[in-house]
Amino acid sequence: MMKCKKSIEISELTITFSRWGQTINAIDGLSINIFTGDWVMIVGHNGSGKSTLLKAISGRIKLDSGKLNLDGVGIEKLSSAQIAERVFLVHQDPLQGTSPTLSVFDNLFIADAAVKRTALSRSGLFDKYHDLLKPLGLSDRLKQLAKYLSGGERQLLALTIASLRPSQTILLDEPLAALDPSKAEICLSLIKTLNKEGKTVIQVTHDPNLAITEGTRTVALRKGQVIYEAVGSKRKVDALRKLWLQEIDV
């Protein structure tokens, strides 16, 4: 029932980059609808437009043409603060997802939308964040500066921050790329929890297996266009691999 509501509507979206007289269509007439509670896995080779799409949804780049609506409102009508209330982007690089000179506690505190609504004291918040970080093995690092955490730990922190944001949609740009297998597993289970809690997740990945086995929907991009789209059990890893190899041959 939840999936009836469109969280993100993209129609005929085009984004071009011009460098030294050469124009590249990073996104070329792309149309896609993402529903509330979806977990969309986006795959594609380098330069297929995956990250550009996430940047467009998070309001970081301007659209050349087409429509991009967040919760039914055109992104061009939304301020950066309003976009931040709707979507939250977690970068591939763990160093980009936190403030290095703030403690882990302060990183969570500044991102926690509930702080304004609830009257929790500092010690109450400390307990709350302690419990939140306990399954991730970071509960004893609350007072430490984020810059002293490892890359994997910072990515876990970034995902925890995502869970505290008011935004309904979480954009994940290859969140597991820089992580070792154990940290990647913890991150994946954190993403699953976020999705179960009702957050819409759009995750970019290079791994075709992951794109099929995880999430609720898989979308493959090539040259800024959708070339494959399947939902649930209809997703086939062989079909995706075939497309993958075709592109390499090209």
């Binding site: 998070s58 970081r60 950066s80 603060a81 309003q82 976009i83 931040a84 209330e85 939250f88 982007l89 970068h91 980009q96 997802g97 936190t98 403030s99 290095p100 000179t101 703030l102 500044i110 991102a111 944001r165």
Partner: peptide, 12 residues
């Protein structure tokens, strides 16, 4: 310390 992250949090 991290302007891009600040934008993600809706900070001007």
């Amino acid at each position: 310390s991290n302007p891009d992250y600040a934008r993600s949090l809706g900070i001007n």
